[in-house]
């Protein structure tokens, strides 16, 4: 299958601030060798608890934050991370970002028309009339009225603002959009409007999504492929349905258990300590060790590599599979 996006060996460590003159050698290991690929027009979902490196991964791809190492092949570009600034600008218009908070991500002093066409103006050489036509077209595309283009963001509700963010993301005709918690700040009745809109746009325009959310049911619903992240590493990856029906990593199994309303009675969930190792003193072995129900001495030796188990299903665990006597 032709991959639209291929990321390999993505690493980002943040140095800890020491004193004024002291040089700290300590580092926070935010993303530790993440690799994945997404076919054109499909969605890769990333799940994991807060602090696992989901958002850092997304920011690295856009080079909002510069990675320490890694390769990012995108369309005809061999490595986006190696591009000089000028070249990067061209590529960036093909990639867009939808933020979690539609209140802080829209400039309150700008007209909606100027917000949604900003990515076009940035590239220059468009007439004012053309911009107006484009703004109306974009707003209609996301289910707003062209008359809305002369309003300010504060005149809209949360769901409508998120539509404006989506219109802005679409304006430069991207082929890849990163959705970072796009519905978590919205009311329940509005969420499905936005999710359906994202699905429709994908089908119509063939856009590839990287979809990040902490609500598991939402990520499972939206994704074709799913990556489960833990302490900056992908511990399991596969087709969403396959992962749901046949989770192999103990952490994935724990996450899926939590979807069940009766989960609190399950010993796997009940006995979970939730203890995450320090990302500063990154342990040599498997980082899930303290919480793992099937840990063995071997797990402390080295972090298990991501190995293929069946079609499109990879897991990083020495003892993958189901517990005995469960299910």
């Amino acid at each position: 299958m032709q991959m639209h996006i291929e990321v390999s060996g993505l690493v980002k460590q943040y140095p800890l601030k020491a004193g004024l003159f002291a040089r700290s050698r300590e580092r926070v290991h935010a993303v530790n060798g993440v690799s994945f690929s997404i076919p054109k027009g499909q969605t890769l979902g990333i799940v994991g608890e807060s602090g696992c490196g989901k958002t850092t991964t997304a920011r690295l791809l856009l080079r909002v934050v510069e990675p320490d190492s890694g390769v990012f092949r995108f369309e005809q570009v061999e490595n986006v991370f190696a591009l000089p600034e000028e070249e990067l600008k061209k590529v960036r218009s093909r990639m867009q970002y939808i933020f979690q908070d539609p209140y802080n991500s829209l400039n309150p002093k700008m007209l909606v028309r100027d917000i949604v066409t900003e990515p076009i103006r940035y590239r220059g050489n468009v007439t004012r009339r053309e911009l107006e036509r484009k703004a109306a077209e974009l707003l209609e595309h996301v289910g707003l009225s062209p008359a809305d283009s002369k309003k300010y963001p504060h005149e809209f509700s949360g769901g409508q603002r998120q539509r404006i963010s989506i219109a802005r993301a679409l304006s430069s005709r991207p082929s890849f959009i990163i959705c970072d918690e796009p519905v978590s700040s919205l009311d329940v009745s509005i969420q499905s409007q936005i999710l359906n809109l994202l699905i429709d746009l994908q089908q119509e325009l063939g856009i590839t999504y990287l979809f990040i959310a902490h609500n598991l049911a939402v990520v499972f619903y939206m994704s074709d492929t799913l990556a489960v992240m833990y302490t900056g590493k992908i511990v399991e990856m596969g087709l969403a349905e396959e992962l749901y029906r046949n989770p192999l990593h103990p952490y994935t199994r724990l996450l899926i258990k939590t979807l069940d309303p009766e989960a609190r009675k399950d010993p796997l969930v009940k006995n979970d300590s939730g203890e995450v190792p320090s990302l500063i003193h990154y342990p040599a072995g498997c980082t899930f060790f303290p919480r793992c129900p099937r840990r063995q001495p071997k797990c402390l030796e080295a972090f298990p590599a991501l190995e293929t188990k069946g079609l499109n299903h990879q897991v990083a665990c020495y003892f993958p599979g189901q517990e005995k006597g469960n299910e």
């Binding site: 329940v188 969420q191 049911a217 939402v218 499972f220 619903y221 969403a240 899926i256 979807l259």
Partner: peptide, 8 residues
Amino acid sequence: AVPRKGTF
């Protein structure tokens, strides 16, 4: 309106 577990 809310995705249930196990729906895609």
